[in-house]
C-alpha cells in the first residue's frame, strides 16, 4: 500500500514537471533583459530551496534521533542529505550554465557561490563519515552531531547575499518585503515548479529512507544467523 502511494506521488510529480516544462518553454515569453536563458531559474531556484529544505529536515531528524534514539530518524536524516547533495549539484550546475551565458564565465569566487560549494563539500563529508563508522547506533549518533555543525554552513549560504556584496542576483522572492518585482505569471511558475521538484524530492527521500530501513532489517537478520 505504502509503495503504491509512493509510486503514485512520483508519477504525479513527473507529470507536474512535464506540464511545467511545456508552459516554461512554450507558454511563457523570454525575459526582457536576459532572453531565453532566464528559464534556467525555474530549476536553479527550486533546486536550492529543495536542498536547503532537505538539509533542514536532516538537521531536525538528527536532533530527533538524539532525543528519541529511534533509528527511523537516522534513516530520514541520511536520506535527506543524499537527496540534498544531489539537488545541490543540480543547483551548482544550473547556476554555472546561467553564469556562462550572462557573466561569460562558468564560476566566480563570489560569496554566495563559494558558500554553496562549501555546503556541498561539508555534506559530502557527512556521507563519508557515515561510511567510516560500522556500528549503526554510533553511526547515527556521530552523523547527528556532524549534521548540527554542517547546518551552520547552510545558514551562512542563505544569508551570504545580504552579508557580502556579491555578483549573485538578489532574492527573487522576499517574504519580508512582500514579494519581489517579478511578473505574476513567472512568479507563479517558479512556485509551481518548486512544487513539482519538491514532490519528486520527497518521493526520493521516502524511497531512500525505506532502503535504509530494509538495510537495517537485513543487518539484524544477518546478526541473528551468525549467532545461530
Amino acid at each position: 500500500m505504502r509503495n503504491k502511494i509512493l509510486y503514485l506521488l512520483g508519477i504525479a510529480g513527473v507529470a507536474w514537471l512535464a506540464r511545467n516544462l511545456y508552459i516554461i518553454f512554450l507558454g511563457l515569453p523570454d525575459e526582457a533583459a536576459q532572453g531565453a536563458i532566464y528559464r534556467i531559474m525555474y530549476f536553479h531556484v527550486p533546486s536550492w530551496w529543495t536542498c536547503f529544505a532537505a538539509y533542514f529536515v536532516s538537521g531536525v531528524a538528527g536532533v530527533m534521533y538524539l532525543v528519541k534514539k529511534n533509528q527511523d530518524y537516522d534513516a530520514l536524516a541520511v536520506a535527506s542529505v543524499e537527496v540534498g547533495v544531489a539537488f545541490t549539484l543540480i543547483g551548482l550546475a544550473t547556476g554555472s550554465i546561467w553564469a556562462r551565458i550572462i557573466w561569460g564565465i562558468w564560476w566566480t569566487w563570489d560569496a554566495r557561490l563559494t558558500w554553496a560549494l562549501i555546503t556541498c563539500l561539508v555534506y559530502a563529508g557527512y556521507l563519508m563519515l557515515r561510511r567510516a563508522v560500522d556500528e549503526p547506533t554510533t553511526r547515527a549518533r556521530f552523523a547527528a552531531v556532524f549534521g548540527a555543525f554542517a547546518f551552520t554552513t547552510v545558514a551562512i549560504t542563505w544569508k551570504s547575499i545580504e552579508w557580502w556584496r556579491t555578483q549573485h542576483p538578489g532574492p527573487v522572492i522576499s517574504f519580508r518585503t512582500g514579494g519581489g518585482n517579478m511578473d505574476p505569471a513567472m512568479e507563479n511558475m517558479l512556485f509551481s515548479n518548486w512544487g513539482a521538484v519538491g514532490l519528486i524530492a520527497i518521493v526520493l527521500i521516502a524511497v531512500r529512507m525505506r532502503q535504509e530501513q530494509h538495510l537495517r532489517l537485513i543487518e539484524a537478520l544477518r546478526r541473528q544467523v551468525h549467532t545461530l
Binding site: L121, V122, G125, M128, L129, A132, V133, F146, F149, A150
Partner: peptide
C-alpha cells in the same frame, strides 16, 4: 573526539575538519 575510534582516523579528521 568524533574520529578517535574510527578506522582511517588520520584520513577522516582532515577531511571533516578542513571544510568546517
Amino acid at each position: 573526539a568524533l574520529t578517535v575510534n574510527l578506522r582511517l582516523r588520520e584520513i577522516m579528521l582532515p577531511m571533516l575538519v578542513y571544510p568546517m
